[in-house]
Design a binder for these strands. Structure first.
Lengths: 346, 346
DNA sequence: ACGTCAGTTTTACACGTGTAAAAGGGAGGA
DNA sequence: TCCTCCCTTTTACACGTGTAAAACTGACGT
């Protein structure tokens, strides 16, 4: 019933009467072997069970065919969607993806980087942890192998290839909309755990000033557990609403998860944000978190183009792997536009 | 500035004057080397940059120290939380986790399984895709290496070790509550993509009958894109609510993501589910999806014990890796109780 | 001075495959 | 029949480390 198990290519070669190097070539690319031989090998593989040893194949190749990916959190659909897209793009490009999660811990992030170096991955795609990331680790990664940063870029490493969203554009888009339809927005920030947080904040302030409005940022003071954005948004706004503050303002949230918390705070205080209510409370987010269409009211936001970012990151990395020259003093930066998603909350 | 890079243990051994086998032992466990020598090695490592080659170390070890984990979806916080817990537990136990996602595709799931076999992982933890999973692949995995199923267990493989939630208990818990406080619930199912879906449904029917009520299951008919549970829940209930049906009933959703869609459908029809409204609409879910506290109204649900499940799965797998005997005719099954989370929606 | 012993080095081989160069084999054309 | 050419096989070596057994080293106690 169960096929006989064969462990090495050598045994396999005697079992089906083809030389071992021919098998080696077959498993790397069947086109490098005569069609008739391919048939014979495939027929042989029907009769026995054999999988080439992953480590042995990688040990002595010039290219491992592996792309390493590091994401900061696993409990955030933003990053899992990004990872999903990256995995699909990499698979299409013929690469195997090994993904690691930093779990909010710089030590784990550093360990993952070391693992990638020790695996001689062909390249690495990293969504950094944020302020606490060990810059030295990233720097070592950059100098040793093809390396592209995704989603957020530390100011401390301006010499790295980068793919992400144009936050000036995307934040500007939603601010313009909010200002056009009603009062200029307050910015509900998130704890400054990563560079996007600061970048968002800065983009908001710049745009407000260029429009001639006074920027107003709230929510930076709260020291929250990492990653609990919803709780943060709710707690901050609950505080203001309790004092009757901002109950009739536009509130732009740093991201949708903060926005979901904001919606919750509004509901708790009997407030219903929405663009239909003139002069009333309006709440908007950023990212187009997958759950936005299902909140009550549905959250108006700016969509990041996960798909484009994932694809661009992979294809740029593959370019570099294939020998594209990168200039550390002038790295390629690809920024994608956000798209306004008008729903109910603003 | 940058330390000289050393690629092999051999070079390292001449660089710091310690024999290569001693270095080998050092990198596996410093305790196997004299303290004075450890100091000398560590001092040497300060001066040069060296990481042992991942593949070479794994190639010839009796144990690779790797646990392979397969989860079905990445865009579902349920599975990412589970994976997070598994990774932490495995790390504590001294194992490296390689995780792969099936992306709703049995072919990818099978490929991941093959990868694990070719990596000679010490053991595998699998949350199966569901009905479409290739049972043959799982069976081959089971016979070749320590193997524990998590979250959902195909009826077609009753001979596998399993860790999950006791759905009879958890579903019973919420049904009892709903019946105690109001009318017996209708069950809003999800498309039957995995075994838990069916299991939930069966648990619901059994409990209802034992309580003397007529079970009523809706939502199985809809053929939805996989993984879009919220949209499914919303679409199904929107259909009923449009016809004025079930607007005053208790609705038990197969999981919280379906429940979030259900809440959305209610809001769209101006309905506010909640336990405070006597005889009115009530909506409950299952799992304790992280966003439940932040929906409007907050979703009442039954919490699965992610942490316990993740820990138990890892520690059981490690037991088997360390030689615990498993009896295929009587595999160990660990079921954890759900905990009622009373919030606002029911 | 001798034996003992623990820690270390040496030696030798193994892991399973990649790869390059040389040698072999069969089909086709002259 | 012979030559040519394309595949394939053979041969030989390489990848970087694990591991077991034997030989070695130095400190210690008698």
């Amino acid at each position: 019933m169960t096929k006989p198990r064969i462990n090495t290519m050598g045994e396999l070669s005697v079992a089906i009467g083809v030389s071992r190097p021919t098998l080696s070539r077959f498993f790397q690319d069947p086109n490098r072997v005569k069609a008739a031989t391919v048939k014979r090998i495939e027929a042989g593989l029907e009769r026995v069970e054999y999988v080439p040893n992953f480590f042995a194949t990688r040990l002595n190749r010039k290219s491992t065919g592996i792309i390493g990916v590091i994401i900061p959190y696993l409990n955030d659909l933003f990053f899992t969607k990004l990872l999903e897209q990256i995995e699909k793009a990499a698979m299409t490009a013929g690469y195997t993806v090994i993904s690691q999660c930093s779990h909010s811990d710089p030590a784990i992030e550093a360990r993952a980087a070391r693992t990638f170096m020790s695996m001689s991955v062909d390249g690495a795609l990293v969504a950094p942890l944020g302020n606490q990331s060990d810059t030295v680790v990233h720097e070592r990664l950059r100098t040793r192998l093809p390396f592209v940063l995704v989603d957020s870029r530390p100011k401390t490493m301006p010499n790295v290839e980068y793919v992400g969203t144009d936050h000036d554009q995307s934040t500007g888009l939603i601010i313009d909309y909010l200002c056009r339809v009603g009062a200029p927005p307050v910015f509900l920030a998130m704890p400054r755990v990563n560079f996007n947080a600061v970048q968002h904040e800065n983009a908001y302030c710049a745009r407000m000033q260029s429009l001639g409005f006074e920027p107003k940022v709230i929510g930076t003071e709260s020291v929250n557990d990492q990653g609990h954005y919803e709780a943060h948004g709710e707690a901050v706004l609950d505080g203001y609403f309790s004092r009757g503050v901002f109950t009739d303002r536009s509130i732009l949230c740093a991201n949708d998860r903060v926005g979901i918390g904001a919606l919750r705070a509004a509901a708790r205080h009997g407030l219903v944000p929405g663009r239909s209510r003139r002069g009333g409370l309006r709440i908007a987010g950023h990212d187009d978190y997958p759950l936005c269409p299902f909140t009550t009211p549905a959250l108006t936001t700016v969509a990041q183009d996960f798909e484009a970012i994932g694809n661009a990151a992979v294809s740029r990395l593959v370019e570099i792997i294939n020998g594209a020259v990168t200039d550390p003093t002038n790295p390629q930066v690809q920024l994608f536009d956000g798209v306004l998603k008008l729903r109910e909350s603003a």
